[in-house]
């Protein structure tokens, strides 16, 4: 099966239709799920809801129908701040500081596991 949009002979494929950016009346929320106790919450998707309470209820129905979650967080998408992917390398210097990695130190075999 394919989800590509078929273009019938003689029909024009207007690829622009519905792809312009726009605003949404209900705010968007990002959903984070803790799969089980002891694990961190992990981002799983988003949804729209009028307020936090209904966002939580919708998140429960949409993302945890098979007991996937021991805990749920919802956060307004507009409250999430992130580096631009283009700029991220400027902040990630780990690759230049290999002395931070345990594997860069030579310990003789006789010493055993360290």
């Amino acid at each position: 099966m394919t989800y590509e949009v078929p273009v019938a002979p003689g029909e024009s494929a207007n690829i622009d239709e519905g792809t312009e950016l726009s605003a949404e009346p209900w705010p968007m929320w990002e959903v984070f799920v803790r799969a089980q106790r002891g694990l961190s919450h992990v981002h799983i998707g988003s949804l729209h809801a009028a307020d936090a309470e209904s966002a939580l209820q919708n998140a429960r129905d949409v993302y945890t129908r098979r007991g996937e979650g021991a805990s749920l967080w919802v956060v307004r998408s507009s409250e999430i701040h992130a580096f631009d992917p283009e700029d991220i390398s400027e902040y990630v210097e780990a690759n230049e500081k290999v002395y931070r990695l345990a594997t860069t130190y030579d310990i003789p075999d006789e010493v055993g596991q360290m």
Partner: peptide, 13 residues
């Protein structure tokens, strides 16, 4: 939700 990460909203779709 996946489509919306591309800048459209679902009401419009």
């Amino acid at each position: 939700s996946a489509a919306e990460t591309l800048g459209v909203d679902r009401d419009q779709l």
